[in-house]
Design a protein around this nucleic acid. Structure first.
Lengths: 114, 114
DNA sequence: CTATTATATAAGGAGATGCTTATATAATAG
DNA sequence: CTATTATATAAGCATCTCCTTATATAATAG
């Protein structure tokens, strides 16, 4: 027996949002660490506007937060999102993406803005 | 800790398939009962070809089976699908759709082909 | 056989999606 | 101040999606 349910229309909307390899990977990555746009650009090998458009969709759905730190804008998972429990229940079955962070660090492209 | 994982590309493909209100509802309905195309047509208020196209996508993903019973083709959830565990983990959070079957029965549109 | 019923496939169109390049905005460095 | 760096937005385009109508296929009824 399930503990909670989500409206089917809302679920379909979320699944459509996450039914994109780039956005789904981003979200799984954000589960473990925060990332800035330029890091995503390096990782996904697409243009910077393409990344901005993807994170915008995640932000509009309330799944991520943005914080400016000097010239960078850091994206993080919004742990307070009301749809996170549903999203989490599927992200739990996705493989950890930490190797992508390690690749970034190996290339010296990890942003550290402290 | 998760018990099993699914490749992120495969997960994105499945989420895209289920990121449609009609297909997601169909699948949730099939969790409880089998349905034929003409029942789906009544329920979703779209054309018969539209329904056929949706079930075709679900069938191509291996999520549903079809069986002919005289002039009707009955669709059922493929309980042996290798992606069903992932799909099930999200369907568990969708509200039961039995009221749709009850509506059909009230209208006398439930197919019983015995 | 023909007519009817149920379903699938084909073709086409409106709108959505995901990318690109060009440009605008915001912060930092000098 | 100007130049550079990081990001967002605008515009355009190719492709995909989901629907429609028209037609084909398969089974049943008479």
């Amino acid at each position: 027996m399930e503990l909670w349910t989500i409206e089917i229309e809302k679920a379909a909307m979320i699944l459509k949002l996450l039914g994109d390899k780039t956005r789904l990977t981003m979200l799984k990555m954000l589960e473990a660490h925060d990332y800035c746009v330029c890091e995503f650009v390096e990782i996904f090998k697409v243009s910077q506007p393409a990344i901005s458009q993807h994170v915008k969709k995640l932000k509009e759905a309330g799944l991520v937060c943005e914080t400016r730190r000097s010239q960078w804008i850091i994206y993080s998972l919004n742990r307070d999102s009301d749809i996170l429990p549903f999203v989490q229940s599927l992200m739990d079955h996705l493989p950890n993406q930490d190797f992508k962070l390690q690749q970034l660090e190996k290339q010296g492209l990890r942003i550290s803005c402290e």
